[in-house]
Structure formats: C-alpha cells, structure tokens
Design a protein around this nucleic acid. Sequence first.
DNA 1: ACTATATATTGCAATATTACGATTAATAAA
DNA 2: TTTATTAATCGTAATATTGCAATATATAGT
Lengths: 109, 109
Amino acid sequence: MGITRTEIFTDEQNQLATLLKALAHPARIAILQRIMVANTCICGDLVGELGLAQATISQHLKELKNAGLIQGTIEGVSVCYCIHPENWKKLEQHLNGFLNEYKGPVSCC
Amino acid sequence: MGITRTEIFTDEQNQLATLLKALAHPARIAILQRIMVANTCICGDLVGELGLAQATISQHLKELKNAGLIQGTIEGVSVCYCIHPENWKKLEQHLNGFLNEYKGPVSCC
DNA sequence: ACTATATATTGCAATATTACGATTAATAAA
DNA sequence: TTTATTAATCGTAATATTGCAATATATAGT
C-alpha cells in the first residue's frame, strides 16, 4: 500500500505531520538555519555552501515553500528566500501545543 | 539516488532530522497524543482506537521506540508504552533551539 | 538578438516508507 | 499441556523520497 491513511486522522494531526515532514531532512534543516542566520535572504549561495547539486537544492526549497515555511521573491536573475514570518509563528505554536501535552513523568512503566 | 547524504551535514542536523522524521506521521502523532493524555501507559488499546492493523501499529511503536521517544515494558501478556521523559525533554530543547534561531521578520523579501 | 547567469523542471535510478496478511513468540489461564 | 491473548516479525505490494544530469525558462548585460 505505501500510502498514508490520512482519512482516519484529524486535520490537526495531518497538518502537523506534513509540517514535520517538511522539516525532517538534514538538508532542509541546514537551509533553514542558513536563512535564519543570514537574516537577509540568500539562495544560489546555498548550492555552494551545502554540498548538493543545484537541482537538489531547488527541490528542497520548493518543498519548504510548499509547506509555507519560506517565501521567495525574484530579484533580478536570482531568487531571494526567507522565513515566512506568520507561518513560522504558527509552526512554533502548533509544535509547542503538541509537545506540551506531555505533563512530566507520572507513575508509569 | 534516494539515499540521504548524511555525511555532508552536522551531527546536530542529522539527529534533529531523525527525530522529526519519527514524529512526521499522523499515526505516530496520534499514538503519542494518546499516550500523553492517558498518562498511564496503554498499548493494545491503540489498535482498536486508531483504525490501523495491529502490525502497522506495532511498526509505528517500534519507530518511536527506536527514536527514543517512548519506552515500553512488558506487563503480563501485554506491553505498556509511555513517553521517555529524558528524551522528550531533549527533544523539546533541541527543537526550541532550532526554532528560536529565527529572530523575527527583518528587512527582507 | 546574443550571451551569461540563476533557477526551475523533467526524467530516471536507487532507496525508503507505509500498510497489511500471515506467521511467530511469549505469557496467562484453563 | 492445551488454548487464548497479545505483541513482534516477516514478506510483500504500493507508493514516496532523494539525488542528479540534462534541459528548460527567465532575466541582465552586451
């Protein structure tokens, strides 16, 4: 089968899973970190700085954009990416909401 | 080629990606939520409560255990799972550290 | 118009993930 | 010891992901 059965889960669960999947790759984490550190948007630099082919970087950027985590604007011949402020905030909230459902270790296993 | 090139990333990046991958499935999110809400460990209940086959649930539990997010102890004929307190804390820290690298929207795209 | 530069898209091969039926293993109860 | 119950493992089919070369697209400068 190989296809996630999203129908049996809540929208919340599916949305969080989708966001986490977008984050769950070292290249995409590295890309996001570089964007965050540089603050000012970069792009083609990424291809040189990470050791991946241009097509591969472009693909990862596309995934991050589809997930809404970054936004890109064309600047002449190059493209400038940066964090999507609102969605990043939403991600933080969504994620913290999930993590905080855990109320410390109680009598258990 | 279909294999993540972990060699070109830092251990931090790879570890975070691995943790996020373990979380990045609605079934595993649902499982974690149920464990967190119930506090006291459950297991076989999960098979009934989520609409997935027993083998599938078992597989997801294994992944969560491999990632260190949960722990399981045998209790008679059944198995009791619960959150792994230390690792959950580490996850929170790791994740917050990553999310907080972003310092709000500056002049950008 | 032509050229150079930057990025996106396409097509494909290698590998990973998801899901499940069937089977196995392990304990509890009879 | 047989039987029932629970969970793990195996095998396999369907699908998704990762990565790259090759190609396409789009803008800037000449």
